[in-house]
Design a protein around this nucleic acid. Structure first.
Lengths: 202, 202
DNA sequence: GCCATCTTGGAACGTTCGTTTCAAGATAAT
DNA sequence: ATTATCTTGAAACGAACGTTCCAAGATGGC
């Protein structure tokens, strides 16, 4: 009956996601998208709608493909504080080295731009922040159950603190912050919630 | 000999600063600046140069007029942890209520945009981050001297942690985060570095 | 009052913006 | 093979972009 698309929308959306992630939505033109994907404007608009909807789709793909898997690993790692430590270690590695070095986090970046004025976008940001807190909370409850947490520390507050800290890591990494400094900082933050060592022969 | 400017460059720069602070540089056109200041393009370009230089001047004004005074107060407050607590309390108040509610921090915002690609801008960001850490460090050394800090905590690491936390507060506040939640979070963060209470009769 | 000098308003520059339109091309069911 | 339907490339849209230019206006030293 009808023609089918001559391209893979999923692969295209991945390309677009990287474009918006690195450059931001305001400084990325539709022409940039055309150049990067090799598609025509017609196909782009027919498939995704306008630029704003394209950005939203790209942001949601970022959350689904980049953020959630990392948080899922954290949630399912029941070692307690070591799980939190590894989460931040992987985060910093990704933010500071390799293909995505100094790109920051697409979600954190969206907080600072005007794109957060869009209710649909802000909803994604809020949802993702809640999920980040929840994953940290799960790991911290694990930590508490294993006696790793200091007496005064409660998993709820600690999760809130570490969630904000993650945003800080994302921001500073985009401006080229040193990975070792960031690692030392998050290590200190985690240590602040750690129970004092028991005597090994106690 | 010659004509003088028919406007106050300083007041103008303040208006421009607010424009870039709220909307970001990428989504603010020269026409917006013209409308907000009431100046003509000629005067604008003759006084400040192009848009990029205007942004840099506005950013530097923000740092000088908005950030530094707050950090200066922190540096000179020698009460220790209460000084840190008040710093964050004022920060959150400014970020969440009044004229500048949900504007975030112009410096934090600049981290996430493409403006941080400009070396001059990035230098401002790095310098400001160092100053933020230094001010927190000073207050934390005060705290340690007064025995407010936990045994394991050192002022250097704690300052790094709280500096990143401040970025997190700035980001989340721009997306409309609840002030009480933010207050509770920073309170918990500060508490994590606090020494356990001594018995009052000890 | 004159004049050199700077400022100002406004028009205009060419470019890029996001979006729309449409004829030509491709597809799959008949 | 025909046909209805969707996709695609390319051109074009008006609006907005950052920047430049210049005549007209304003200023202060002489």
């Amino acid at each position: 009956m009808a023609d089918v698309k001559h391209f893979d929308p999923d692969a295209t959306l991945d390309t677009v996601m990287r474009l918006f992630w690195r450059q931001g939505v305001a400084t990325t033109g539709v022409q940039d998208v055309v150049d990067a994907t090799g598609l025509s404007r017609s196909s782009l608009y027919a498939t995704f709608g306008g630029k704003q909807e394209l950005y939203r789709a790209a942001l949601e793909r970022y959350v689904r493909e980049r953020s959630r898997p990392l948080l899922g690993r954290l949630e399912e790692d029941d070692r307690g504080l070591p799980a939190v430590g590894e989460f931040f270690a992987v985060l910093i590695e990704r933010r500071c080295t390799g293909e995505f070095a100094q790109w920051g986090c697409m979600v954190s970046n969206a907080h600072a731009g005007t794109e957060n004025g869009n209710p649909a976008v802000r909803a994604v940001l809020d949802r993702q922040h809640r999920y980040l807190r929840a994953a940290l909370h799960t790991a911290l409850v694990s930590a508490q159950r294993q006696g790793q947490l200091a007496e005064g520390a409660d998993p709820d507050s600690a999760a809130d603190v570490l969630a904000l800290l993650a945003h800080g890591v994302n921001l500073r990494s985009r401006a080229g912050a040193d990975a070792r400094e960031l690692r030392a900082t998050v290590t200190a933050a985690i240590a602040a919630f750690r129970a004092p060592e028991r005597c090994s022969d106690g």
